[in-house]
Design a protein around this nucleic acid. Structure first.
Lengths: 313, 313
DNA sequence: ATCTGGTATGCGTATATCTCATGACCGTCG
DNA sequence: CGACGGTCATGAGATATACGCATACCAGAT
């Protein structure tokens, strides 16, 4: 009864659980039943002789032992994937970089960087996926992305408390603004007073309070919940409500929408971070990181297709 | 049906097979039956979609795909062992060096080097095991030893033809001699004429022709087959036959044995090589290699116990 | 021709692993 | 406060897996 008796399945399941944060999500991602995943984790824990995840009511979190095991499991599965590719004759997936990004990086940052890469380093393939900050942090830890663009808000804590700490770097720091319908009375001025936001209907991200101005002291009226930025902005244009946006979107909003700063209350800033595991990047991944740091200031990326878009549901 | 569906058991069995060179030997080493090993290999091959071993009538040999897979499997199992140790709280087995050696290195080279190490680097633990040159070469490839002392005879070819080639270094080069009973007529002179060896009874290593002077043009009379050097030399002392020894043993033979050079025929030399995989050694392993290269010239190693007794039957 | 290494395979059984269904727990919302 | 929606755990039963045993087979040495 040692970890040497564990099975590769257990390891894959464990990585997926570490990445998804809940057994159920891992199960659907793997095409298993939740119960199967529960048993696999229990079995792996028995093999390891230690609790690997802390069961919580909103999912699971890795214990110290779990983090320890995950680090090894990641490289094990990397090796397995590598031999898989080698046997298939695909020569070295090393030129492929996996990048994860939060939705708000999908407008300026990612397309511009990818466009620059395509021009300067056409041999590099970038596979990208969208996700939330915690999901991407877990994906970094689980080794399924090499780089991740994360969101950070004051007080700018580290993305997670695990060890080793992630390498992070501030890519952009923008002030938060509010998108209002051009026809809205508030759109007549060049800024909005905090007090004017009282009682306004908000368009939030689905499930979260994101999209609502964070300084309000009232219970906000959530008129709509929508993930997609374009849909969100069109709802604003249609006068259905207000929403918050980073000022990088100011140029990219459809007609009928104005993006204005808010006066009064605390200054609300948002950072986009480039994060990676604290180990050296592959050379192509380094190029991608460079491209993200110093992307071109023109906006060709807005109009041309990204290199590759791969979504992992 | 991809290599990702393989099991850790398959990988362990595969490594053992790669190391032992036959399914049967791997089976007994693992405590399985030969049939189980056969199926495991077949299953792994199905998962890999390629032949991994070439079935021969004297065992199996790795195919190109097999060598490819082995390289990955080695690091996979290393990771698994590592997490196993970490979970047990044993902090980093990195200070342990695994050394394999051929029997003829067990008299001067290994004990002297270990004695020197114990004095100069007492924190380094060395686990050693004895084996034949081909077995140790496979063990190097399979990652179960870090360093190996190998035998080499003219024309001094590389230990194997696989890629990447092993790093080898000549540690000693000695002329081959013959051990004769002190009471034997041949022991009266200080050398032996090749012609005098005709018709002599030989004491060979078990199963091999080792121990018989290689320049003979007749079919030798093998009087005894024995692996152990001490037993062999005592058989010589008892007048049961002759055997070949490296001249490094000249000082270590029991009373009643004389070690003499052979005149006539080709000069027979034997090298002992220090071999390793062509990747950087850990720091302690480097120390062990150093100790083997520049061991003390006194013979304390002959009288004191080696650091660690060997494992692995 | 026989014997002695080696590997492959049919068959029966023990074990492991999945699904389904159900239960317990907790935080949220009406 | 009680229902609901989310989570994980677990018992029962079907199924797939992996083992050992016995045997077949094959090539080389005696």
């Amino acid at each position: 009864m040692t970890v040497a008796d564990a099975s590769l399945t257990e390891l894959r399941v464990f990585r997926e659980v570490a990445e998804r944060g809940t057994l159920t999500a891992a199960a659907t991602a793997l095409g298993y039943t939740q119960s199967a995943v529960s048993r696999q984790i229990a079995s792996l824990e028995r093999h390891c002789g230690a609790e690997l995840v802390e069961r919580r009511h909103d999912g699971v979190r890795l214990t110290a032992a779990g983090q320890l095991v995950l680090r090894r499991v990641v490289t094990v599965l990397e090796q397995v994937d590598a031999v898989s590719r080698e046997l298939a004759g695909l020569p070295d997936e090393h030129a492929t970089v996996r990048l994860g990004w939060i939705t708000s990086a999908g407008v300026g940052l990612v397309p511009q960087a990818l466009a620059a890469l395509r021009d300067n380093h056409p041999s590099i393939t970038v596979m990208t996926r969208e996700g939330t900050t915690p999901a991407l942090v877990r994906a970094l830890r689980a080794g399924t992305v090499d780089l991740a663009l994360l969101a950070s808000a004051p007080p700018y804590r580290a993305p997670d408390e695990e060890t080793p700490a992630l390498d992070v770097q501030v890519l952009t720091e923008r002030s938060l603004r509010v998108a209002v319908p051009a026809s809205h009375p508030l759109a007549r001025k060049d800024f909005i007073e905090l007090a004017d936001l009282h009682g306004q209907p908000w368009i939030a991200g689905s499930g979260t309070a994101m999209g609502v101005w964070p300084g309000l002291d009232e219970r906000p009226v959530i008129a709509h919940s929508v993930r997609d930025w374009l849909a969100k902005l069109h709802l604003v244009a249609a006068g259905c409500g207000l929403t918050t946006v980073g000022d990088s979107l100011s140029d990219a909003v459809p007609p009928g929408v104005r993006v204005l700063p808010v006066r009064g209350g605390s200054h609300e800033h948002r950072r986009i971070l480039l994060a990676k595991l604290p180990r050296p990047l592959s050379e192509p991944a380094g190029r991608v990181a460079d491209a993200l740091r110093s992307r071109r200031s023109d906006n060709r990326g807005l109009t041309r297709q990204p290199l590759v878009v791969m979504l992992v549901p």
